[in-house]
Computed example of a mutant assay.
Amino acid sequence: MTAASEFFVNLPLRYIYTNPDYLDIFIERRIQPELGLDCLGGECLDRKWLEGIRRRLDEAGLSCTVHLPFLDLKPGSLNRAIRGATIEIMTSALDIARMFSPQRMVMHPSLTSWLEPDLFEKTFFYCCETVIRISDHWPGHPPICLENTHELSPAPLVRIVEHIDRENVGICFDLGHWFSFSKGSINKDFDRWFDAFAPYIRHIHLHDNDGDRDAHLALGQGKMDWKHIINRINELSPRPTMTLEPHNRKDFETSMEYFKTKILPALTQK
């Protein structure tokens, strides 16, 4: 697959740290990575190692996006210490992201939708404050794309983006999360979510599932209606960047083939 400026495949830094062959595969096949910055070992502490990855991508002429940390983090936490730790980890991650000049930066706002209304309002405003603090850490940063996860409606994420009201803070529409976590497989409400998100979509995550869980299946191996999804994506102008999110080597190959033969040709037919 030839590298194109708007298409990426997920590649957590911890994968490269434990198996350097992953980076070799991406470079040899000219696949642009979405670098995951949830660092569970020493990979984010070794600046020389990080600079080596950046240099190899630069030499190969490959761009990237980054996925900011999300494990154990809560931007809108009602606990001040947890919010503080989230800001500290996120701003450190932005310093790493800056090394790679990413096209997009994906972030989980991780809203707790089931909270009673008064507590949800608090966590909503705390989340907005946290995103603003993170955004201020890198003036002029590339778009931060807030990703839907467990929300049962598109409204809270849209509300965050509209409240922050910055050109470089938008939405990452994760299609697999909508289909599973948000019960899209049951509600059949893709158009409702798409229409709500459309003005703010800067990035899209593509992976499949059967609706029962966030399985990150290869594209075409679940029950998602990709023909309809791609038809709607074609309505967006400019077209958002996109990342495939397979979680194992077999699904990686299957997703790449499905994307190349089914999705990419449909996306190019305007």
Rank of each mutant, 00 (worst) to 15 (best):
F7P: 06
V9M: 12
N10H: 03
R14Q: 08
I27R: 03
E28F: 05
R29C: 09
P33D: 08
G42R: 12
D46H: 13
D46L: 04
G52N: 10
G52W: 11
I53P: 00
I53H: 14
R55I: 12
L57C: 01
L57Y: 02
D58A: 15
L73F: 14
K74T: 13
P75F: 01
G76V: 14
S92N: 11
I96Q: 10
M105Q: 15
H108M: 04
P109R: 07
S110P: 06
F120M: 06
F125K: 08
Y126S: 00
C128Q: 04
R133H: 14
H137Q: 07
P139K: 14
H141A: 15
P143V: 15
I144K: 07
N148E: 12
T149F: 08
H150Y: 14
E151I: 11
L157R: 02
V158E: 04
V161K: 08
I164D: 08
I164G: 05
D165Q: 13
N168A: 12
G176I: 01
W178D: 05
W178K: 02
K183A: 09
D191I: 08
D191N: 08
F194T: 00
D195W: 07
D210K: 10
G211N: 07
A215F: 07
H216G: 01
A218H: 01
L219H: 00
G220I: 01
D225R: 02
K227Y: 01
M242P: 11
E245T: 08
L264F: 06
